[in-house]
Design a protein around this nucleic acid. Structure first.
Lengths: 131, 131
DNA sequence: CGTCGCGTTGACAACCATTCTCACCTTAGT
DNA sequence: ACTAAGGTGAGAATGGTTGTCAACGCGACG
């Protein structure tokens, strides 16, 4: 049974308000910034639960830290992140899915999974750099 | 200046003999298993150097640990890993490169980088599971 | 409403990959 | 060989993440 606790509600709310991928530590800070008191371990536990429930996406940044984000669409999709401001665009890429499948088949691998993320500099940040 | 030391040679050799992606710790064990004495920190340092020299590929496994591998081709490419035996196939995917570029352009992101790895069960391991 | 069972929590320790420190060692150029 | 500068190792430090366990609080049920 999954209970709705004060802490979980606080974490979910912060996550819902955030457009971008956040580390567990950032979420923790944000929750505390809103006056709630929530333990770091609880943030991690909540994220694990939501990830395995498919309600949240995880990805690892270049340093290997886990980052979480509540996505609009629940189906499988990919992301395009701005490496400066963290802005995130969701991308569905039937092309990549097909590619993964066909490459797997060509090498006689079964049960194919894949990761694919894009990183770049968004138009706004590129403009800022010029100035 | 880059010097060739006993330790570095040992690490490079082990890496050359290995077809699969290995964590720094695994490489360390393998080197010591061959009778050489090399510090773990040195393995990490050597890997960093080789990665930034483009001689070695890194990727992060699901747990976020860095894994290293010496690849045949030096150009940018992707991998298909067997999640059971670790076997690795190199894949060049012009398709994915184009996809990354065009998606980036469509969202007006510049300086696009991407990650894309495939995981599956190879034919041999699939056969083993049946038995 | 009150009780009770069990999922949940939090403070803190434990873990573990990775990096840093720093005194000592080795390579490479001459 | 001589020496400067890069390289090394043991261990400590770092930092993200997970485990521990007693105390807590949802919510089902009466």
């Amino acid at each position: 049974m999954q209970r709705m606790t004060r802490q979980r509600a606080a974490v979910v709310e912060v996550l819902a308000d955030s457009e971008e991928f956040r580390t567990a530590q950032e979420l923790h800070d944000m929750v505390r910034g809103q006056g709630h008191s929530v333990g770091l371990a609880t943030v991690y536990r909540t994220m694990q639960a939501m990830v395995s429930a498919g309600e949240v996406d995880v990805l690892r940044n270049a340093e290997g830290e886990a980052m979480y984000r509540r996505c609009e669409r629940t189906e499988h999709h990919h992301h395009l992140l701005c490496r400066d401001c963290g802005r995130t665009e969701e991308i569905d890429a039937a092309l990549v899915e097909q590619w993964a499948e066909s490459v797997g088949r060509a090498h006689r691998f079964s049960n194919i999974e894949h990761t694919a993320e894009l990183f770049g500099t968004c138009a706004d940040c590129a403009a800022d750099e010029d100035s």
